[in-house]
Design a protein around this nucleic acid. Structure first.
Length: 272
DNA sequence: ATCCGATGTCAAT
DNA sequence: TTGACCTCGGATC
């Protein structure tokens, strides 16, 4: 479930379990990170950071483990160390102490990098709604300079870091914006409202460990409808609801490919 | 048993 | 715009 909220939560979860610890056992049962794991093995994890969808595990002078989960990377934590974790052959990076372990599977990136390389990654990212140092004006400037649809710009990590397919669909619905609206047509007021909403929604995502975007007055209970179960673990307006009735107006939710991903929106509630 | 899609990104065309 | 990559679970046969 990797959008930015997942990564920020992971940064916190790694820190909680492995810092401060005198030494962490670092292995790569699957093998692709074996050389770097051997360099790090037995050293302490000193800090963790999240920037957008990028996770950095700091090993002091040895550098950083740069992790990107991609579409289906996952981390599973255990509070005791099992001698042979289930499906060990797919674990790219395993951290272990006598009291905890963390198994990383299926990441798009897991690499040992330097401070300079970490800075280079961060320099390529737009402001992250989950970071206190984020400057939303940087994003606005890029948006206003582009004819690309706002739905594509929101997914562009150089514009905003951490937003993925669920948050983009949901935030556009919450603000009644047609996903094909060109970036240059978005007003500053609109952007300010969207940004503030992303900050709130994504912090809530970190807290709950899931994406919930439906306002209390629009929940099935509040609307007097039968409860529904979304298969992604949260309550949403449009994401993966193609063909189902809009929660607010009943129009069929539409879907279309945009930038290699499935976009979802309500053609009635969302206008340019 | 097999297929397919998924909250992502990049390189090649 | 497409294909490649990484893994897993749910749907389908």
């Amino acid at each position: 479930m990797p959008e930015g909220h997942t990564i920020h939560r992971l940064a916190h979860e790694y820190a909680t379990r492995f810092t401060p610890a005198p030494a962490v056992q670092v292995t790569s049962p699957q093998g692709k990170f074996a050389d770097s794991a051997a360099l790090l093995d037995g050293h302490p994890l000193t800090s963790t950071e999240a920037h957008g969808k990028h996770l950095f595990l700091g090993f002091g002078p040895l550098g950083w483990v740069h992790i990107h989960l991609g579409l289906f990377g996952k981390v599973s934590f255990e509070n005791t160390v099992r001698a042979a974790p289930a499906k060990a052959d797919t674990i790219r990076l395993n951290l272990a102490t006598p009291t905890a372990s963390a198994a990383l599977r299926g990441p798009t990136t897991c690499a040992l990098i330097t401070d300079a390389e970490k800075l280079a990654v961060e320099d390529r990212l737009g402001p992250d709604p989950l970071r206190a140092d984020a400057d939303p004006d940087r994003a606005l400037r890029r948006i206003r300079a582009s004819r690309a649809p706002i739905a594509a710009l929101l997914m562009d990590q150089k514009v905003v870091a951490g937003v993925g397919n669920v948050y983009r669909a949901e935030v556009l619905f919450r603000h009644g914006i047609d996903p094909y609206t060109p970036g240059r047509d978005l007003t500053e007021e609109r952007w300010t409202a969207i940004w503030r909403d992303l900050v709130a929604l994504m912090h809530e995502g970190v807290r709950l460990n899931r994406i919930d975007t439906v306002r209390p007055e629009h929940t099935p209970e509040a609307m007097g409808r039968p409860p529904r179960k979304d298969d992604h673990g949260g309550e949403v307006y449009v994401y993966r609801r193609a063909g189902l009735p809009c929660l607010l107006c009943g129009t069929e939710i539409r879907t279309a490919g945009l930038a290699a991903r499935n976009l979802f929106w309500c053609p009635t509630c969302q206008h340019a």
